[in-house]
Design a protein around this nucleic acid. Structure first.
Lengths: 113, 113
DNA sequence: TGCCGTTATACTATTTATAGTATATTGCTA
DNA sequence: TAGCAATATACTATAAATAGTATAACGGCA
């Protein structure tokens, strides 16, 4: 038996979590939402809707988007979103460690399994 | 913006969490799964399937069930399950406090919202 | 033995989430 | 100005989760 957890941020509905973090990391690396989605095996359509929903709930943009041009365009993570990524990521990492410890504290002598 | 989290236990799939805890608490109070479900506004069918799935994954019974008889029957939480309830409940409560603190540590000076 | 309220379980329906397909638009470049 | 690769968005299709309905079986008791 093992503990599993999910942590996310809410504002008017879910605003940031594991999924968005991963997408944004890929966008930083690839330079476009389309190729980021492709690399994750996710359809561009899904990725786009996910980002759109987040931006609406957050009330500010997490991607600077350019349409057209030499390369067709591309997307860049805003500095606001970069901060959010770092904070959420650190927060989650620490949480994982604490929860693991807490689990052992409460369950190490449990005989139910 | 605020942090939201879910914690549960897994064995071969989800084995215990917030929902099961609440049902079992109600069963203890009411004496039957049917009336526990009713009180939660949940169909008996759903409650029954939930319990059945849990028992299969845990490998032991969490309810002692009596069918028929004067009162029609009833269910009682096994002592194994009682332990599980207490430990999970304490674990989750502490986790909530720790995560709240951790959130403020990482986000108190965040200007993104 | 007939009634009652419970557990047990199959089967169907509905809703929700997720995924895919198609098409328009943009703006640099050859 | 034609082509390219990206964003933008509507519309449809599919899958998965969730909920509901119906029915059988049980066993005390009047």
């Amino acid at each position: 038996m093992r503990p599993v957890f999910k942590i996310w941020l809410e504002n008017n509905g879910k605003v940031f979590g594991e999924g968005p973090l991963e997408i944004l990391q890929k966008v930083e690396k690839m330079g476009s939402l389309r190729s980021a989605a492709a690399q994750m095996g996710m359809s561009y359509n899904k990725a786009w809707r996910l980002i759109a929903a987040l931006e609406e709930r957050l009330g500010y943009h997490i991607l600077e988007k350019r349409v057209g041009g030499a390369s067709g365009g591309g997307s860049k993570v805003t500095s606001n979103a970069q901060q959010l990524m770092k904070r959420y990521s650190d927060f989650k990492e620490e949480a994982a460690i604490m929860l693991e410890k807490l689990y052992y504290k409460h369950f190490e002598d449990f005989e139910g399994d």
